[in-house]
């Protein structure tokens, strides 16, 4: 009984690490630019495919992680400057922008389907004997996933709290117009936001496929609901909130999977989403949220 609980909590932490990396990127992007980016899942998949291509050409998986992050950063910056800003300049508000990202997500997903020939590719790296620690048995890959999540979290918090750029980011998230009036170069900050959130997104894509050991065109899109739910539950713009929400969702999903069968674990994700809606009126109420995009 206790053993099942302990091991499902451990698996939950693994899943939470993957969700958290993606949700941190999502929440930074969303908190700053106010773009609810539904093409985020597609960019995750791009990161995953880049890492897959790299490792299948004999490049180490560690470099694959870095390459996935770089790809995510570049793609997100290009989309941010080349697509989202164009719509924002033409007067799109948050809702119209979400619809744009929905179309963009479709374009990315099905382009990837066309390129990948609708196949699912095996991605097995860093395999070795599992590590036992009491009732908890984890593969080294899973331990690495947790470690990456923890390192990213600490690094992101340090960046936001200790550097000047972090200060500018927080200032802009609080009030973009005021930040500009105070002399913060908001254009640079936005560019940095696209790069940072894109890198986290690409990295999350690679970590996700390292964990599930396969990659297909819809990998990121199917994972996106958990990411968005974590970002909303944690509060837009708050990496700490995103991590806590990811831990809650990851552990609950895995405990349900362990006790109620894997069928219901998706339903549990659904349940958490309902709880998100009912429990955080402050996050989802119309009144406080602005309708304007900060691009």
């Amino acid at each position: 009984m206790f053993d099942t609980l302990a091991s499902s909590v451990a698996f939950g932490v693994v899943l939470a690490s993957v969700i958290a990396i993606a949700a941190m990127g999502f929440t930074v992007q969303f908190g700053l630019t106010n773009v609810l980016n539904l093409s985020y899942g597609g960019v995750m998949t791009i990161g995953g495919f880049v890492a897959y291509l790299a490792t299948s050409h004999g490049i180490s998986a560690w470099y694959g992680l870095a390459l996935g992050a770089v790809a995510g950063a570049i793609v997100t910056l290009l989309l941010g400057r080349g697509v989202f800003r164009v719509y924002a300049r033409r007067g799109a508000k948050v809702f119209e922008m979400m619809m744009v990202t929905l179309g963009l997500g479709l374009v990315i997903d099905y382009s990837l389907q066309a390129i990948s020939r609708n196949n699912i590719y095996q991605f097995t790296v860093l395999q070795s004997a599992p590590i036992k620690w009491g009732p908890i048995i984890l593969t080294p890959t899973q331990v690495i996933v947790i470690a990456i999540g923890a390192v990213i979290f600490v690094a992101l918090e340090a960046l936001l709290r200790l550097t000047k750029m972090g200060k500018a980011l927080r200032a802009m998230a609080a009030d973009a117009a005021l930040a500009r009036a105070c002399g913060i170069r908001t254009g640079w900050v936005i560019n940095f936001t696209w790069l940072l959130s894109g890198a986290l997104c690409g990295l999350a894509g690679v970590v996700y496929i390292i964990n599930t050991q396969s990659v297909g065109y819809s990998t990121g899109e199917l994972f996106l609901p958990l990411v968005i739910a974590a970002a909303i539950l944690g509060g837009a713009g708050s990496p700490t909130g995103a991590v806590l929400a990811a831990l809650l969702m990851g552990i609950v999903t895995q405990i349900v999977a362990a006790y109620g069968g894997s069928l219901y674990s998706t339903a549990a994700g659904f349940g958490i989403l309902v709880v998100v809606l009912l429990s955080r009126p402050s996050a989802v109420l119309t009144k406080q949220a602005t309708d304007e995009l900060a691009l």
Partner: peptide, 10 residues
């Protein structure tokens, strides 16, 4: 429920 329309769509 009353919430931002982009949240609702998502």
């Amino acid at each position: 429920r009353r919430m931002r329309r982009d949240y609702q769509g998502a």
